[in-house]
Simulated scan of single mutants.
Amino acid sequence: MDGSRGARLNPGNGIILQMIELDDPGPVNVDGKMMNVGVYSEPTDDPAKDYAFDTTPVHTADGAAAFTSIALKGDFYNGMRKGKNMVLTFEDSTVQGVISATRAKHRVSTIDSSNFYELGEVTNTVQAAVNNGVVVQLGSGSTRTVTGTSYLTKLTVSADAAVRAPRGKSVTMTVDGAATAIAAGSSYSGAIVLTVG
């Protein structure tokens, strides 16, 4: 998205990008006829780790979004259960909010044609990535203001980019459990946790 001509995003629910598994059960073949009787059931188990899937690089099938010359205020969540990273690239932009891997959960346990309006309606509980990496690339002239705990798998900060906390607060980072300074011109991979205090 290019904001150089004034384009803006103002999400009503505060979420700019939400990645979740497909929850639309779609029509079902009943006696040779397509009927709208499909039912989506919310998984109750934790996602099983796919050790063949790497949550740190960019894959061609990942969900990717690029933002240029724009001021963003809102959250980005990757709630995929199966291997798919969320790849976010910012150039000459500011972004304020939470960017994180998450456990996404619907408000109801089943969705069918009677409550179709629940499709895509989830709550997020941020947590470390399982098969849902979060790759953030802060390009030239970009500033990331972290407003809440965020779980990433890769963070690249250009030489003239910055990661900050809201005024009066500070942001800290751990990588694979070790406290790590956030330095411009650096890249970090692994279990990254950004915390605001």
Rank of each mutant, 00 (worst) to 15 (best):
R8H: 06
Y51M: 15
A66V: 14
D24I: 02
G79C: 07
K84R: 14
F76V: 05
Y77P: 03
D46K: 15
R107T: 15
A52D: 15
F53W: 14
V87W: 10
R8M: 09
Q18F: 07
D46T: 14
A61P: 07
E21K: 02
E21Q: 07
E21Y: 01
A52S: 15
S100K: 10
K33S: 12
S100H: 12
R8Q: 12
Y51K: 15
D75T: 08
N10F: 00
K73P: 00
P27T: 03
E21S: 03
L88F: 07
S4H: 05
L72K: 11
D23M: 09
D23R: 04
G32T: 03
G74D: 06
M35H: 04
T102N: 10
G6D: 02
R103V: 10
A66T: 14
Y77V: 04
S109N: 15
A101I: 02
R81A: 10
N85F: 01
M80N: 09
S41G: 14
A65M: 06
I16F: 00
F53K: 03
H106P: 12
E21F: 01
N29M: 12
T110H: 09
P57W: 04
L17T: 06
V98L: 10
A48S: 11
H106N: 14
R103C: 10
N13K: 00
K105L: 11
G97R: 08
V58W: 04
A61N: 14
S4R: 12
A61V: 12
M86H: 09
T89E: 06
Y40Q: 03
P25E: 07
M80A: 13
V98F: 11
H59F: 03
S100E: 08
T89L: 03
G83C: 02
D46R: 14
R103P: 02
D62M: 05
Y77S: 03
S93E: 10
M80D: 04
G38D: 01
S69Q: 11
P43Y: 06
